[in-house]
């Protein structure tokens, strides 16, 4: 996984796939048993102390000593890290906790603790921000604020590595993504590249006016296509070779007026690559990653 400087990079994977373990290992909380990692050009964990001051991070759910106020919590971290305490009010204001700064953390909701965690990561004005599920517990407004914040931080030159399950958010704010499953990378690249390289395989088909849709659909079904009828068109789900649709229909004297690929979103790509799409009548277990049998698509 390579995160380019100045980008917002999404780090995705199903539950138990190893996202948090990867981040913990990167941050020196878990000892690696092999491989190579580097942050800001320095090999870690060996050189982690040298770069730790430039890395702001929250890992998994935010945890703080519950009897301290947010202000005290951050000022203690500032002292420990040699950061000027004067920054504390500024970051609390940035995450929307200015007015609740003098309340004990135990009175905070999950979303407020999450904001405090982000504030603690921002306190040292990091060059690299690593956020594990930062939108956990946030209300819709908070999620939008977080999105704006990430974007602003990125615009200011900060590199952001973001792990999240809210794929719509990732698609909106990330420049690039890495998707892992069962501890292994399954794809990476810019969001546009990943989406382009993993088309849904679904096409929308419209026919000339007056043609019987049902007859045409049945003809395709006989050839193995997964067809779903709509009002004035139908879709073919496993059309990895759309030319076959035109051939089958043309052989019956039916001509296509529209053949459009239905674009995939990040959620579709994620579910396909990780094999975690729900299947009717089955209870998928956490570590199951059953890649679809139609991986290669109909017609190939």
């Amino acid at each position: 996984m390579i995160v380019e400087a100045g980008q917002v990079h999404g780090f995705l994977g199903p539950n138990g796939s190893g996202k948090t373990t990867t981040l913990r290992t990167l941050l020196g909380l878990i000892e690696p048993n092999g491989g190579r990692m580097a942050i800001l050009g320095k090999e870690v964990p060996h050189h982690l102390p040298e770069v730790a001051g430039q890395v702001g991070a929250i890992v998994e759910s935010p945890q703080f000593f519950p009897h301290f106020t947010a202000e005290l919590t951050l000022s203690l971290l500032a002292d420990a890290g040699g950061v000027n305490r004067a920054r504390v009010p500024a970051v609390l204001d940035l995450v929307g906790l200015r007015d609740r700064a003098k309340e004990r953390v135990k009175t905070y909701s999950l979303g407020m603790k999450q904001r405090l965690a982000v504030a603690s990561a921002l306190l040292k004005e990091p060059k690299l921000l690593i956020l594990d599920e930062p939108a956990n517990g946030l209300d819709p407004g908070g999620i939008r604020e977080m999105r704006t914040l990430m974007r602003d931080l990125s615009d200011s030159g900060m590199t952001v590595l973001l792990s999240s399950h809210i794929l719509g958010e990732i698609q909106l704010i990330c420049d690039s993504v890495t998707i892992i499953s069962a501890g292994r990378r399954v794809t990476s690249g810019s969001v546009a590249e990943v989406l382009a390289s993993h088309r849904s395989g679904m096409v929308r088909v419209r026919l000339e006016t007056g043609v019987d849709l049902l007859d045409a659909a049945n003809a395709l079904r006989e050839a193995g296509a997964q067809v779903t009828l709509e009002n004035d068109h139908f879709t073919v789900a496993n059309a990895s070779n759309p030319a076959l649709i035109t051939r089958v229909l043309a052989q019956r004297g039916v001509y296509v007026s529209e053949l459009t690929p239905v674009s995939a979103d990040l959620e579709d790509v994620f579910l396909e690559l990780t094999g975690t799409a729900p299947v009717a009548g089955q209870n998928r277990q956490v570590d199951e990653s059953a890649i679809s049998g139609a991986k290669n698509g109909w017609g190939q």
């Binding site: 941050l27 730790a52 945890q63 000593f65 603690s120």
Partner: peptide, 16 residues
């Protein structure tokens, strides 16, 4: 209480 509350982990993110 530092261990139990997660404060130790926060601290280690600052001072590895």
């Amino acid at each position: 209480s530092e261990w139990n509350s997660g404060g130790m982990m926060n601290l280690l993110l600052w001072r590895p």
